[in-house]
Design a protein around this nucleic acid. Structure first.
Lengths: 240, 240
DNA sequence: GAGTGGTCTAGACCACAAT
DNA sequence: TTGTGGTCTAGACCACTCC
């Protein structure tokens, strides 16, 4: 019962404010002598806090209390001016958040899942856009968007630079204005790839958002798979 | 590097379908002899998968591949008929999901956070409702709602049974129809209390939703703090 | 009873940080 | 150089599951 009780004590101390965000917790050696336990037991106690997302460990320097200052990703229904979620994100946080377009493929095979969502036939091609959002150099969001190549190929959507207003503005110009959106949100632990790509701290989940855009007549024109570092974001939905 | 490589091998085997949801992974003893490592090393490899939410361990019986079949919590903007999110949840999943009202307090002190959100003065009382949602006996969602006692006290909202249509129907009858909602969603690891209350598996995050309901003139009439087992839910938002 | 995971000990060597 | 966390070994005892 000792590892758990070490964790319990430290957790209580963090909650009560004895240790504040950024503070260093007692070292493994200190816990060993304070509690009279073996090193693996002290470590286990500390690792529980890490798995709860309460602390971050810095090799060679210590275990520190974590802080949470989320970026607010505001997804408002109201403004039907074509301003996308992406721009909303940038506006919200100002200069701190930057977007990097990683890759654009004008015509690619559609994965099964995408084909079903977009209602495409086998063999139909899609335009793929991959982008990464960074906050102060740290990657915080990774998104892959798929659009029917029959709509997007040959437009700026299939180019590296989409132009002002983003893909939604281009879709509107092409007569496929997206007016309804569906976002499916799940929370889960990151895959190894996501841990590397987003440099996610142990004990931090991701939010996985599947976003589908529909035109007025209900035709899906874009599906995006967005993975966000849950330690960096709050999703805000304003409804009705 | 051995614990990590055991995890890597097993992870790959799970992804490729060698081990399917519900299947049992090799025991610690098997991994010890297969990889020629000490028990703690084999355990550490397995614990990585658990922390990723890929597996569940059953004491005395083995380590098993986990499955994910989410309840869809549909939060549609459209239907302005007073049907609440709660009923939507029930409708979605049918008989599997039940709601239990844990406690109702007609007049209570408002926590600082609640007072600010609802725009109350110090000393103003609130009506508090706590409820728990269960899926096949397992608790999956815990919610605490706060309403100004000046509105709710003396109405069925402050009673154990709110009646048909829920609190929103009662608010509408009382001339405080909630028509706009804000949901703030964050993902994080559960607290110890949440792990116990919702019986959350290790490696499973929670979704924490702060929901605020506003009347036509922008007055907040209810704020709810909802914690969902992320291993059980998908949040769906239909926008515009 | 045999097999499974849960916890703990006591010690070793390594890698990184701060000084 | 000293102190920090990261990893691994070899063994012990316990608690739970299934036959």
């Amino acid at each position: 019962m000792t590892a758990a009780s070490i964790a319990k004590d430290l957790r209580a101390a963090i909650r009560s404010g004895t240790y504040k965000p950024g503070d260093r917790l007692p070292s493994e050696a200190a816990l060993m002598s304070n509690y009279g336990v073996a090193r693996m037991t002290a470590r286990h106690g500390l690792s529980m806090l890490k798995d709860e997302g309460l602390t971050v460990t810095r090799h060679g320097s210590g275990v520190f209390v974590r802080s949470f200052e989320p970026i607010v990703r505001d997804t408002t229904g109201g403004k039907a001016d074509g301003s996308s979620t992406v721009t909303a994100e940038i506006d919200e946080t100002g200069a701190g958040l930057t977007v990097r377009t990683l890759a654009v493929t004008a015509e690619a095979e559609a994965p099964e899942k995408v084909r079903t969502t977009l209602g495409l036939a086998e063999g139909d091609k899609v335009t793929v856009r991959e982008r990464l959002h960074l906050r102060e150099r740290k990657p915080v969001l990774f998104a892959t968007s798929y659009l029917p190549a029959s709509i997007a190929a040959g437009t700026p959507i299939a180019a590296q630079e989409v132009g002002p207003g983003g893909t939604h503005a281009r879709l509107t110009e092409a007569g496929h204005a997206p007016v309804r959106f569906r976002e499916d949100v799940v929370g889960r632990m990151p895959t190894i790839e996501e841990i590397e790509e987003l440099r996610i701290e142990p004990g931090t989940p991701v939010l996985s958002v599947t976003r589908t855009a529909f035109t007025e007549d209900g035709t899906p024109v874009e599906v995006s798979y967005v993975v966000l570092d849950a330690g960096e974001f709050m999703l805000r939905y304003d409804i009705d």
